[in-house]
Simulated assay, not measured.
Amino acid sequence: MRMMRLLAGVALASLMGVGAAGAQTVLRSSDTHPDGYPTVEGVKYFGELVKERTDGRYEVEVYHSAQLGEEKDTIEQVRSGVIQLNRVSMAPFNGTVKETIVPALPYVFRDEEHMHKVMDGPVGDQIKAAFEPVGLVVLAFYDAGSRSFYNSKKPIRTVADMAGLKFRVIQSDIFVDMTAALGANATPMPYGEVYSSIETGVIDGAENNYPSYDTARHVEVAKYYSLDQHTILPEVFVMNKAAFDAMTPEDQEIFRKAGADSVGRQRELWTEMTENSRKKVEEAGAQINDVDKQGFIDAMKPVYDKHVTDDVLRKLVEDVRATQ
C-alpha cells in the first residue's frame, strides 16, 4: 500500500504545473465503453463540474473504448496510481472488496428503482467505505441496467433451455457459479473478445444489458435475447486514494459532490439509451422473449450458500432486502 501511495503521488505530481499560480492538474479516467455511452458521458459531466468548481485547476481526460486497457488491467492501473480515475463494473472487485459481492448476487434487487434506493442509502455508504482499504475512493455508483442472457442458438424460456450452452461472463466467480447453477458453461473473457468468440463458435453467447448488446454489435451474431434479468449490477466510478488524499479538504468535497451530481445525468442518459437500444436491436432482428423467472431465482440458492459466507455479507443481504 505504501508503494501504491508513492507511485500515485509521483504520477499526480508529474501531471501538475510546478511553481505557477493556478497550476492545472490533468487526471486520466478510463472506460471500456464507446464514446457517447452513458457511463462515459457521466464521467465527462463529472469532469465539467470539477473544472468549473475548481476554476480550472483540475481537468479530467476520459479515455473511452478501452484505450487504456480492459477492466481488469485498468483496475490495477488506478490502484497503483498509473491512472487516477476509472469507471468499471463492480463484479471484478468481488475478490478484493468482499462487500461488492452483495450487489453482484443474482436477483438480490427487485428492480432498478430498488437498486437505486439501496445504493443511494446506508448500504451504498458501507460498500463505498470498503473500497478505501484497497486504495480507492468511490465517487459514484452508475446504472448498468439489468443483465440477461443472449445466444446464437435458441430462445431460453426455462432453466432447462440453458443446458450445455457456453456463455461469456464477467471475470467474477459469482457469474461463473450462477451460470453453472443454471446448467450452462461459463467462459470468463474480456469484453472486447466476445463478438469474435460468438462469431467463430468458441462460445454460444453472453449476458449483458440492451445498450451493451447493441453498441458492441453482439446482436449481429447472437439473435436470441432472453429476459431473465439475473442481475442489476451497478457500475462504480473510483479514484486513486493517494491522489485523493493529496488534495485539500475543499477539493475533496468538490470531487465527492461532482461525483454525486453526475449520477442523475448518467441515469437520465441510461434510461434514454436503454429504450433506444431495445428499438435498435429489434430492428436488427433480435428475438426477445420472457422467461420463467421464478425457476431462475430458485436455482440461485447454491450461489448464495457459497458466496454469502460471513455475518457482514449476510447482514448486507438482509439490509438490501429490507430496503423499501
Rank of each mutant, 00 (worst) to 15 (best):
Ala184Val: 03
Asn185Pro: 00
Ala186Pro: 04
Ala186Asn: 03
Ala186Gly: 11
Ala186Ile: 03
Thr187Gln: 13
Met189Gly: 00
Met189His: 01
Met189Cys: 03
Met189Ile: 07
Pro190Phe: 11
Tyr191His: 12
Tyr191Leu: 13
Tyr191Trp: 12
Tyr191Lys: 05
Tyr191Ser: 14
Tyr191Arg: 14
Gly192Thr: 13
Gly192Asn: 15
Glu193Phe: 12
Val194Ala: 11
Val194Leu: 10
Val194Lys: 08
Tyr195Asn: 01
Tyr195Glu: 01
Tyr195Leu: 13
Ser196Ala: 15
Ser197Thr: 06
Ser197Trp: 00
Ser197Leu: 04
Ile198Gly: 08
Glu199Pro: 00
Thr200Gly: 04
Gly201Ala: 04
Gly201Thr: 08
Ile203Lys: 01
Ile203Gly: 04
Ile203Leu: 04
Ile203Tyr: 01
Ile203Thr: 08
Asp204Lys: 04
Asp204Tyr: 00
Asp204Gln: 03
Asp204Arg: 04
Asp204Ile: 06
Gly205Lys: 07
Gly205Pro: 01
Ala206Lys: 00
Ala206Ile: 03
Glu207Met: 14
Glu207Pro: 02
Asn208Lys: 06
Asn208Leu: 08
Asn209Phe: 01
Asn209Ala: 12
Tyr210Ser: 05
Pro211Lys: 02
Pro211Leu: 08
Tyr213Leu: 06
Tyr213Val: 02
Asp214Arg: 03
Thr215Phe: 08
Thr215Lys: 14
Ala216Thr: 02
Ala216Pro: 00
Ala216Arg: 12
Arg217Pro: 01
Arg217Asp: 13
Val219His: 15
Val219Phe: 14
Glu220Leu: 11
Glu220Ile: 07
Val221Asp: 04
Ala222Met: 09
Lys223Leu: 06
Tyr224Ile: 09
Ser226Gln: 02
Ser226Thr: 12
Leu227Pro: 02
Leu227Cys: 11
Leu227Lys: 14
Asp228Glu: 14
Asp228Tyr: 05
Gln229His: 13
Gln229Met: 12
Ile232Lys: 13
Ile232Arg: 15
Ile232Val: 06
Leu233Asp: 15
Pro234His: 04
Pro234Asn: 02
Glu235Gly: 14
Glu235Asn: 15
Val236Pro: 12
Val236Tyr: 12
Val236His: 09
Val236Ala: 07
Phe237Cys: 08
Val238Ile: 09
Val238Arg: 11
Met239His: 10
Asn240Ile: 00
Asn240Arg: 10
Asn240Met: 11
Ala242Val: 02
Ala242Asp: 00
Ala242Met: 03
Phe244Cys: 06
Phe244Pro: 00
Phe244Leu: 04
Phe244Ser: 00
Asp245Val: 04
Asp245Glu: 14
Ala246Met: 09
Ala246Asn: 07
Ala246Asp: 10
Ala246Ser: 15
Ala246Gly: 05
Thr248Phe: 10
Thr248Val: 02
Thr248Cys: 06
Pro249Glu: 07
Pro249Ser: 10
Pro249Thr: 05
Pro249Gln: 10
Pro249Lys: 08
Pro249Phe: 09
Pro249Asn: 05
Glu250Leu: 00
Glu250Tyr: 06
Asp251Tyr: 03
Asp251Asn: 14
Asp251Leu: 06
Asp251Glu: 15
Asp251Gln: 13
